[in-house]
Amino acid sequence: MKKIFGYVAALCLLAPMSGWAQRTHVRAAERLLQAEKPNYSEIRRLLGLAEAHEETKADPYTYYIRGLVDHQLYKAEYRKLTTPGIPGDTATMFRHVVDELPAWLRADSLDQRPNAQGRVQPRFTKRIQDFLKEDAPKMYDAGLFYLDHKDYARASRAFDYALQAQRLLLPAGERVLKADSTTANLAYYALVSAYTGKLYPEVIRLGKEYRDLSTNQNEVYQFIARSHLAQQDTLGALPLLEEGARRFPKTTFFFGKLISIHQAQGNYKAAVALIDEAIKAAPTNPNLLVLRGNVYFMAQDWVHATEVYKQVLKLSPDNYDALFNLGQVYYNQAVSLLANPLATKLDEHKAKDYFRQSLPHLEAAYKRSPDQVRELLGNVYYRLGLEQRYAELHQEKQ
């Protein structure tokens, strides 16, 4: 009986002693950091043991020291780079200043938990903030460094961490970033880096958090919408496109994509209604009118398409889209008549007239974009019996 009791007592002592041992590992790691030449391999090994243990993996002290390791490595590299005659590595310096943040975010999160009495008494947040007052701007610099080297994943991460560092620097009880110039620029650079690198899931994640804090919001909304579309996520893109159309009515991208989606779904009335809403804000915008004509074109409503394209050409006589599309409208009407097996001589006469009407518009469009227009224009020349012009057109291609 005494043996059993002694065995149970030993088990009761084992768990708290084990946790105590892991905290000792963290303290040992901190002492090693203070050495003249710290053994970083041993420091990381000790911290790894602490992070793997049930008690110390939830202790902010563990992650405070983990962040302090990268902070110290960053400072060591920074001193080399700023001391004449001592070689240093800029990429290494920036890597460490960025890498310090995840551990410190974890430390701060654990530090904000209420104690047994329900009070929040952080032990490390103030120390972390003191370091970040100097280090947060360096994270911004790291992002610019990576962006300059076209390492878009690291650049986006650095800008994102710089934003999170700004949040961590806010007074106690505040964790919502304010839309100042620093935040706006960081948010924009984080998004533009991710988008340029085609990191579409990251663009979407960053967009949810920072799109309304960023500078250049018109462009940012386009980045996020395009990222959804790049992943074939029409449902996710729609709210961004609708909000972009509402906020930036003079930007045809949002309306254009919305219209394309409605067209693909065969919902032409909704597409026209969207354009009409945009035209209210910019009644003389030829690009919006072209979009309206394109909807009718897709619906094969040739009468309304012709009216709209002519309206565009009154406002902008050299508008390539209106010229080419109007030429296609006339061409399609002619071909439709001739494709009818019951076509009469009168239909053939009307078709030829449509070909004649398409000709000046296609010739004007050809001057702007020969490669795109050449084949259609050649067909019109052929249909009208203009062999010389047809031959000259194909000689130009050669």
Rank of each mutant, 00 (worst) to 15 (best):
residue 263 Q to W: 14
residue 313 L to H: 02
residue 289 L to Y: 10
residue 239 P to W: 06
residue 290 V to W: 07
residue 229 L to Y: 03
residue 237 A to N: 11
residue 244 G to D: 07
residue 259 I to Y: 11
residue 258 L to V: 07
residue 267 N to Q: 15
residue 299 A to Y: 01
residue 253 F to D: 10
residue 299 A to K: 05
residue 287 N to F: 04
residue 212 D to R: 10
residue 273 A to I: 10
residue 307 E to R: 10
residue 223 F to R: 04
residue 233 D to T: 02
residue 313 L to P: 00
residue 271 A to T: 04
residue 306 T to I: 07
residue 317 P to F: 13
residue 281 A to D: 15
residue 292 R to F: 09
residue 223 F to S: 00
residue 296 Y to V: 01
residue 273 A to Q: 14
residue 256 G to C: 13
residue 302 W to E: 00
residue 235 L to P: 00
residue 304 H to Q: 15
residue 267 N to R: 15
residue 260 S to C: 02
residue 281 A to E: 15
residue 269 K to Y: 14
residue 265 Q to V: 05
residue 303 V to I: 09
residue 318 D to H: 05
residue 260 S to D: 15
residue 237 A to P: 09
residue 229 L to M: 08
residue 266 G to F: 14
residue 292 R to G: 05
residue 248 F to C: 04
residue 238 L to K: 13
residue 211 R to I: 05
residue 208 K to N: 07
residue 218 N to C: 07
residue 270 A to V: 12
residue 283 P to I: 12
residue 318 D to Y: 02
residue 316 S to N: 11
residue 209 E to F: 05
residue 216 N to W: 13
residue 262 H to A: 15
residue 293 G to R: 10
residue 247 R to Q: 12
residue 254 F to V: 08
residue 242 E to W: 06
residue 288 L to K: 03
residue 222 Q to F: 07
residue 276 D to I: 11
residue 309 Y to A: 01
residue 306 T to Y: 11
residue 223 F to E: 03
residue 244 G to H: 02
residue 246 R to Q: 14
residue 248 F to S: 05
residue 238 L to C: 03
residue 223 F to A: 01
residue 258 L to A: 06
residue 244 G to Y: 03
residue 254 F to M: 08
residue 249 P to C: 04
residue 290 V to A: 06
residue 312 V to Q: 09
residue 245 A to Y: 10
residue 298 M to A: 12
residue 313 L to S: 00
residue 298 M to K: 11
residue 278 A to G: 14
residue 293 G to V: 08
residue 298 M to N: 11
residue 208 K to G: 06
residue 301 D to Y: 05
residue 313 L to W: 06
residue 308 V to P: 01
residue 210 Y to R: 03
residue 313 L to Y: 04
residue 312 V to I: 09
residue 264 A to Y: 12
residue 280 K to P: 09
residue 252 T to N: 06
residue 248 F to A: 04
residue 218 N to W: 09
residue 286 P to N: 08
residue 309 Y to M: 01
